[in-house]
Design a protein around this nucleic acid. Structure first.
Length: 571
RNA sequence: GCGCCCUUAGCUCAGUUGGAUAGAGCAUCGGUUUUCUAAACCGAGGGUCGUAGGUUCGAAUCCUUCAGGGCGCGCCA
């Protein structure tokens, strides 16, 4: 039910049926022709640039062509009440009341499907994938909320989505983490001082993990290597438990957890590398040291490389380390080979800004692994900058000074966090001011949207109105200008959903909902100035307003549903 | 040195895959409540869309140049 698409179709059909009379060629190239909501200062329902595009294609005067097309469409499309030619040649279309009534009824019939795009792809979205070396911090939060909301959005459109978490439970960082736990256990048991070593994790939570493990295992903890396997099992388990609990408090749950360790231990890597060797994407070679910071133990020796320069990357990428063991990237290729073999139509990875440099090679790898059949698209969330009392607040995992999601959630609710994290394009840095979020003031846009819902519920309560489930709406009289503005905004909803999912930009949804709420609050307040705009008269709500309210509730529910932000009845 | 992202009102940011007079919030100033929720509304001021070119009926949007800011550039994960 996208009125813009529907009417665009009939307009173009009409023009193509009568192109000779219009003195133009049949339309072959539709690029750029569109229908949209007119700018606020034009009082009409739809506006289109068809004439401008066609005049260009046919090298004729837009105004003359416009007049002819206007005549044609007014005659042939019965939903159009009136067409005006404005500016350089825009068609500004006003719809008949009957047409509007029909559209509204169609929307109400669609109900929770209103705006859905009828896609049916099978997506895999990998997001969060935070190292299991500690709890989630605020920085992880953005990617988490982004990935989850994008998943909801794609599901809303009828796609199948697998939300995936890749557990980096392998490699040096994990050893350092386990060693830290081990040393904390020694600290607890033998009062040994925890060493001041940069490679270790000093955080407070390590002590908790250590304590819980040493209580569970009867052992002297005399040798790190002897305890390794047990520590690995237990400590990683505890870490993941913390992370999952944090995610769940944010309303996020993944469908699939894939462990790097299990990928490494499987034969996937051999298969993937063999395939890439056969297709000539992997070969032995030498690499020059990188241009940035100098690396001490660089050894220019022959090793297996992935030829990502074939895809436009700056350099080929090493698959083997000095000692011949596989690099992180090699393991990641195996993991993505595993993803490719699971037959998704599209893979999406949500990354933090610090991993931008990694995108080219992994996207290239997926192309190579799937013979260009499957596309991996990486979406980057820029940094979250933390502020406390207007002062920048630095945090680092190394020093253990960071604000965990858990700390945050003990003070701010999930709704505010989610809305705040999404109320900005993923391409720009996000200032996250604790004091502002904690204030629960009207500065916080989530309250503004929620309040819109609460006000509507309050209206319905005070008129004992429970019959909002009406299937067919009858319009008693013309909608007033405020109502028409709200209607036009509501008609725009499918387009917002479409663009958001097309570009993987869920932030458009909170912005849209905010604007919608503004129109409602504004209309509501008209009753303060003028009795005739009061919603409740003689204890009843007029049919037109009831209609508007039904539509608003529908869109609020669908929109906030995608964001997974609640809509309280009372505030 | 290279790659990616950003540069729009005093501040923080939207901007519909090229459209009409570039929009919000915050801040500033002024106004609205015997009332369906003031967590709200209305009004005012505030702009060389970083710079310089180009593409065309038309550019904040596309291309190129330069400048400024951020992130990254491992044979770490």
């Amino acid at each position: 039910m996208n009125i813009f698409e529907n009417y665009l179709k009939s307009i173009l059909e009409n023009i193509n049926h009568h192109y000779k009379e219009l003195g133009i060629n049949k339309i072959e190239n539709y690029k750029g022709i569109n229908l949209e909501k007119p700018p606020p200062n034009f009082d009409c329902d739809i506006s289109s640039n068809v004439v401008l595009i066609l005049a260009k294609q046919n090298k004729c005067n837009p105004i003359t062509l416009g007049k002819n097309i206007k005549k044609l469409l007014e005659k042939n499309i019965k939903d159009f009440k009136d067409i005006e030619i404005a500016g350089p040649g825009f068609l500004n279309i006003t719809l008949k009341n009957d047409a509007i009534t029909l559209i509204i009824n169609n929307i109400l019939k669609k109900n929770e499907k209103f705006g859905s795009q009828k896609d049916s792809k099978n997506y895999n979205i990998e997001f969060v994938s935070a190292n299991p070396t500690g709890p989630m911090h605020v920085g992880h939060c953005r990617g988490a909320v982004f990935g989850d909301t994008l998943s909801n959005l794609l599901k809303f459109n009828g796609n199948k989505v697998t939300k995936e978490y890749y557990i980096n439970d392998y490699g040096g960082q994990i050893t350092n983490f386990l060693k830290s736990v081990y040393l904390r256990i020694r600290e607890i048991k033998y009062n040994e001082k925890f060493p001041n070593d940069k490679s270790l994790y000093p955080g407070e939570y390590i002590i908790e993990i250590a304590d819980s493990i040493q209580k569970k295992r009867k052992s002297e903890f005399k040798n790190f290597d002897d305890e390794y396997e047990f520590l690995q099992l237990e400590a990683l388990n505890l870490s993941m438990k913390m992370i999952k609990s944090d995610l769940s408090m944010l309303g996020i749950s993944h469908d699939n957890f894939v462990s790097e360790k299990s990928v490494v231990e499987s034969k996937t890597l051999d298969k993937a590398i063999n395939l890439l060797k056969k297709t000539n994407y992997v070969d032995e070679g030498y690499l020059d040291p990188p241009k940035g910071e100098e690396i001490k133990n660089w050894k220019k020796t022959k090793r297996l490389l992935f030829k990502s320069t074939l895809f436009g990357d700056d350099s080929d990428r090493a698959l083997q380390k000095n000692d011949g063991s596989w690099t992180y990237f090699a393991n990641d290729i195996a993991y993505h080979f595993n993803k490719v073999s699971r037959n998704y139509d599209k893979l999406i990875n949500i990354l933090g800004a610090d991993h931008t440099g990694y995108i080219k090679r992994i996207e290239s790898a997926v192309k190579a692994l799937s013979q260009n059949k499957i596309i991996l698209e990486c979406k980057v969330c820029q940094l979250v900058k933390l502020f406390k009392k207007g002062e920048p607040f630095k945090m680092s995992k190394r020093s253990g000074e960071f604000i965990s999601v858990n700390d945050l959630l003990s003070e701010v609710n999930k709704d505010s966090i989610r809305f705040m994290m999404l109320n900005r394009s993923n391409d720009v840095e996000l200032d996250f001011d604790f004091d502002k979020v904690l204030e629960k003031s009207k500065d916080n846009p989530v309250y503004y949207v929620q309040y819109c819902h609460a006000r509507i519920q309050s209206l319905l309560r005070s008129t004992n109105n429970t019959s909002l489930k009406q299937k067919i709406v009858k319009i008693d009289k013309d909608f007033n200008k405020y109502e028409r503005e709200i209607l036009r905004k509501i008609f725009e909803w499918p387009k917002v959903v479409k663009i958001s999912s097309l570009k993987y930009e869920p932030h458009r949804i909170p912005f849209y909902l905010y604007e919608l709420a503004t129109l409602f609050h504004s209309y509501w307040s008209k009753g303060n100035e003028d009795e005739k705009y009061k919603f409740i008269k003689n204890g009843k709500i007029a049919n037109n307003i009831l209609t508007i309210i039904s539509l608003l509730l529908l869109v609020l529910k669908n929109g906030m549903g995608i964001l997974n932000v609640s809509l309280p009845d009372k505030m």
